[in-house]
Design a protein around this nucleic acid. Structure first.
Lengths: 337, 337
DNA sequence: ACAAGTTATGCAAGCGCTTTCCCGAAACTT
DNA sequence: AAGTTTCGGGAAAGCGCTTGCATAACTTGT
């Protein structure tokens, strides 16, 4: 059996309370401190986490809900979360399920059965209002990653997302700086909040630059390589553009493929840019100019906010935090000047 | 405050003991069962995990030690582990650190400070004998993923790995079936146990097929794309082979790149095969013929073994388990017949 | 040197559950 | 119907820790 606090007290001829207080950083006499330290070392004592958690009424656990845990895209975020959680002596428990769809609230188990101290919900889909109700009922600190929905402020939650609008703007501006005026856009699926934000960014940037918006140059797609392929072939049929921005890298890679198969060259005939900066973006030919999503950073910030709230229930920090993505210039866009 | 077992007892006019027994599946009278069920429902009662864990003296936690948690290669394994762990109501806590190097035993914290019930060590590097000593001292169920080292059997551990030797044999045989007789091999770095196993598979397969082994056709590399590029250019200089097997997909993709850049075509001038079946293998041109590592399955099996041991300390299951990888034929190898 | 103030320490209760022990009720036996 | 066995349920102890309260041990000021 492992030594208990009682053993330490006996060996050091003090009491359990003193040992406990010493372990929790409360002041003790120099002499007692030394005796205690010696006793703890001799016994190889480590406080029992279960006992401690029982009295403190906390599991030291953060519940993390991910739409699709097998999607590698999320792993950067998860690493960020783990990092901060561990730093503050929390552990994470993952729940793989949809946190957005109507009536899909299986993740509430984490709160009731696992009794987590706080929750991080990751989903880039638009969230239902019902979700916010459920969250409020939990009366537990919750951080949202991805779409914060409308009710962030009203509901007193923390939400972290990437600044999609700004990210796309950066690419458009960059393309324009290197001489492009005819820029098309391959959008993502409607259910994602990022989709409309990125479209907005695209439109606003065109306006800022005084370029005319061709509605037919915004073609919807589905984040997939195949979708990108199809969208690109449509665009090539329409013709007229010198550059194409895809809503994510996978789509961009599909577009790349299509372009090549139709006998065109990138960036000679078409400049193509992506969004996300996934690992393979630098592997394809030509290496993709894209916008890096600071996923790790997003995970970090959400968790830091959550932890602060968990440690101090009165903490005020809330609201929407937008992380700035940054442009990664590689070789898939040609300088026309 | 949340309802406690005491509240349930009072509301149902029974005692804490009865409630507890009912919750733990022990027999109760039909009538009591109904009263209890009703009371539990009415109160929305959920047993407090901390209290339960305290008396059971178990954290219901598995410690998972990964060499490099940011390496996406591991995520399949981790998903398998999480899956089984959750199924059995365990949660995982990750430790990102080297579990192999001399003197690097930071992961022991998991055992002492976090008080995990069991440990899974993931590393494909060769393990030091010292590691096995440390593990034995823990007197805690431990499963190894990757190199099991020598002492598996002596130390009574469970070890799960992929059958590297067999995987490479399969490719060689496949290549031979489609007419290849001159097959070169790009090996991985020495520190990995898989490296020697794969080389062995390569050599044995050649022997089985009566092909002559050209020592200079085994060129060492470092798992990286750049390494693959370099190795391939060496091989092309030497010349004479019709096919090249790379020790992993990333290397194979580097080799692919090199081949193209030197003006050759795959699979026309060289057939190239990989190992792992990472996501991008099907994205490159031509899609890579490779051997799929059943990472998810590896995670599953290791965890199942561990859980069995944790639930029943007397469980005998131990030893080395080898999971069979399987050939994935795509377009990077040409049929010469 | 002594009262008053300050700080360190010990005692005991209690966190919410499981489990042993024992008793009373029900189910069997004859 | 009385005696024997079986079994469900209650009381209480205990898991290892924290913490409020009371007391003991030091400081400090005069």
């Amino acid at each position: 059996m492992n030594p208990t606090i009682h053993d330490v007290a006996r060996l050091s001829k003090t009491s359990k309370s003193t040992v406990s207080r010493y372990l929790n950083g409360q002041p003790v006499k120099k002499r007692t401190e030394e005796t205690l330290k010696a006793a703890i070392k001799e016994l190889g004592y480590h406080p029992n986490v279960n006992a401690r958690r029982l009295v403190k009424n906390s599991t030291q656990t953060i519940g993390v809900v991910v739409d699709d845990i097998s999607n590698n895209f999320y792993s950067g975020i998860l690493r960020g979360i783990e990092k901060v959680a561990n730093l503050h002596n929390y552990q994470c428990v993952y729940y793989n399920g949809v946190s957005h769809r109507q009536g899909e609230f299986g993740f509430l188990n984490l709160a009731h059965e696992r009794q987590v101290d706080g929750l991080i919900l990751i989903s880039f889909l638009k969230r239902s209002p019902e979700l916010f109700e459920k969250i409020k009922d939990l009366s537990m600190p919750v951080a949202l990653i991805g779409d914060g929905g409308e009710g962030i402020r009203d509901h007193g939650l923390l939400s972290v997302d990437v600044n999609n609008e700004h990210g796309i703007k950066e690419i458009v501006h960059y393309l324009n700086r290197i001489g492009h005026k005819e820029i098309a856009f391959i959008a993502g699926p409607d259910e994602f909040s990022a989709t409309s934000q990125r479209i907005t960014g695209y439109k606003k940037a065109l306006k800022e630059l005084g370029l005319t918006l061709q509605p037919s140059w915004i073609v919807p797609s589905d984040w997939s390589k195949e979708g990108g392929y199809k969208a690109m072939s449509e665009l090539i049929n329409k013709g007229g553009m010198t550059a194409v921005i895809a809503s994510n890298d996978e789509t961009a890679i599909g577009a790349l493929l299509c372009t090549h198969e139709l006998g065109f060259r990138v960036p000679k005939h078409f400049s193509i840019a992506g969004f996300d900066d996934i690992e393979v973006s630098s592997w394809v030919y030509p290496p993709l100019t894209t916008v890096k999503q600071p996923l790790y950073q997003i995970g970090i910030e959400a968790t830091e906010g959550l932890v602060k709230k968990m440690k101090n229930k009165e903490a005020p920090l809330q609201g929407r935090r937008l992380i700035e993505p940054n442009l990664v210039v590689r070789d898939s866009c040609m300088n026309l000047l």
